[in-house]
Design a protein around this nucleic acid. Structure first.
Lengths: 153, 153
DNA sequence: GCTCGAGTACTCGGATACATGCTGTCCGAGTTCGCTGGG
DNA sequence: CCCAGCGAACTCGGACAGCATGTATCCGAGTACTCGAGC
């Protein structure tokens, strides 16, 4: 189990777009900031756009711009859009498949699935407790200044 | 990002082996309990054996048996053995790759990686807080009884 | 000088190949048990 | 009747294909700007 590299790119892009404060930044510019393949990064940005976290601006001078205030976007929002909303642990109810299965449908939920969901909930809760604005602040003023200077190109 | 189906099988097998209380249970028997492919399940059991959570008993009447007390095995132990010990989020330090990179090696760690690690830590902590014994108890006495009856075959 | 229009360059968007890792399967090495023959 | 030896069945263990997801790429549709001609 590993988070995809798209998540890392999406988070960094959200920080940059947050610093841009609504000004559109093109895929090519963002790709140049991180030396990532532009066409592939575009796909990740489209995911974020579908999740309504950013919106696309077509035409010359267009790109993507952030739609919400950084204080109102959590890490959970971004991760959920990129990684999907499916639970990390999917219970296949194998306890009900073979021998030793209960003859009647079980009233109690699968204890194993419940335990995994509990951990997953802690994961999601911690992600939801962190906002994009906190990430932008934690990155430091130096990174912000260098990034804005690079965007002016 | 999704946990593999091996994790679900590993957890169920650990519960069964815990109920067996040290008596070896063969791969074929465990596979029959959950209607899983025996050869594939064997691979998962080998992982658990390498992690010292269970041990193999060769020969006729052999199989796998648990090596620790269920109160001393956590969900974290099992998940770590099956899913690997690598972090969920791998930071590629893309902030240092393209333009806007700091000329000097950054003293502060990547804020994004730190945020993701924080959530991951909460996930691991919650897994480590649950023991195999608790899982066995939560599964209920009915499941335990039916499973032990199936093992007697 | 102003306005209208076509052209052009740049942007996103979806459709298309490639790679990696998980899923599933097979066959071989080793061990234990049971049977058989002899003492 | 007891014991030693052999054979067979069963077990794990690692090596081998198939498939799904993630990664990477390309080309087409659409839009805003720019330049030029006409009024």
């Amino acid at each position: 189990m590993r988070t995809s590299t798209r998540t890392e790119a999406a988070l960094h892009c959200c920080v940059v777009l947050g610093w841009a404060e609504g000004r559109p930044v093109s895929t090519a510019t963002l790709a140049g900031l991180f030396e990532l393949p532009a066409a592939y990064l575009n796909k990740t940005l489209q995911l974020l756009a579908r999740g309504r976290l950013i919106e696309s601006v077509p035409g010359v001078g267009g790109g993507f711009r952030i739609t919400r205030r950084p204080t109102e976007v959590t890490l959970m929002d971004i991760v959920a859009v990129v990684e999907g909303r499916d639970p990390l642990f999917r219970c296949n109810e194998i306890r009900q498949h073979g021998r030793a299965a209960s003859p009647t449908p079980p009233s109690h939920p699968c204890a194993i699935a419940a335990g995994m969901r509990r951990a997953e909930l802690a994961y999601r809760k911690e992600l939801a407790a962190q906002t994009l604005a906190e990430l932008m602040a934690a990155a430091g003023p130096g990174a912000r200044r260098r990034t804005l200077a690079a965007l002016a190109l």
